[in-house]
């Protein structure tokens, strides 16, 4: 049992410190990397909770996809120039800190004062059932494709919409017609073509008369 306590203590302290680092560091890149630390340690807590599948998904999606997306964007935007600028709101911070502290106090109060876990609220998946099914992935699958089929489908539609939306938004409006490759060639090529055409016409006109 003690190893669990040790593990939890480690995970919670590192996650909190890394969270603090995420919002305090100057560079967005460092901030994103701190978020990766938070993500890994929260995933560790998922393991402690007996939900290995969720931990894996958390690492793959957050650390593997979302944070990488952030880093790519930062690379695209080239943020180095403004590193000397102030990083926090001068006035807003004096409002933000009390509000955040108050919020923490309230939520922590709820967290500490006895949460509802009475027997009659319990669901159909005690640890032994999950073990019988073969693990948390199988247990999640049994509900995801039965009771939560519709939300699952809706989530997939949401992802599709987000993917299309991201492409539309990020596309360069100056390069409107990716579909027609000839336009990608410089203007010079176009004028060449048209002059060629007019030359051809000129040469053909006398022929028809003759």
């Amino acid at each position: 049992m003690t190893d669990q306590i040790v593990a939890f203590t480690y995970l919670s302290i590192v996650a909190s410190v890394a969270g603090l680092a995420t919002i305090l560091v100057r560079s967005p890149v460092h901030s994103a990397l701190s978020l990766v630390v938070v993500v890994f340690h929260v995933a560790g807590m998922f393991v402690l909770l007996g939900n290995g599948f969720l931990a894996a998904v958390q690492v793959i999606v957050y650390a593997g996809a979302i944070v990488v997306l952030f880093l790519f964007t930062m690379m695209l935007l080239d943020l180095r120039r403004h590193e000397t600028e102030r990083t926090v709101h001068r006035r807003q911070i004096w409002l933000a800190i009390p509000i955040a502290v108050l919020l923490f106090a309230e939520v922590a109060w709820i967290a500490i004062s006895k949460p509802e876990t009475s027997e009659n609220l319990k669901g159909a998946f005690p640890p032994q059932t999950i073990d019988e099914l073969g693990g948390s992935a199988q247990a999640l699958a049994t509900v995801m494709f039965t009771d939560y089929l519709l939300p699952f489908e809706v989530a997939s539609v949401l992802l599709l919409a987000a993917a299309i939306g991201a492409m539309v938004l990020a596309r360069n409006p100056d390069e409107e017609s990716l579909a027609s490759p000839p336009d990608m060639i410089e203007d010079a090529a176009g004028t060449d073509e048209s002059s060629e055409q007019s030359e051809r016409e000129l040469s053909e006109t006398p022929a028809t008369h003759g």
Binding site: A96, A100, L103, E106, I110
Partner: peptide, 16 residues
């Protein structure tokens, strides 16, 4: 966002 957060504080506080 600050107003939103303040609203959250008020409503969570009321809940508490």
């Amino acid at each position: 966002l600050f107003l939103i957060a303040a609203g959250a504080v008020v409503s969570v506080g009321a809940f508490v």
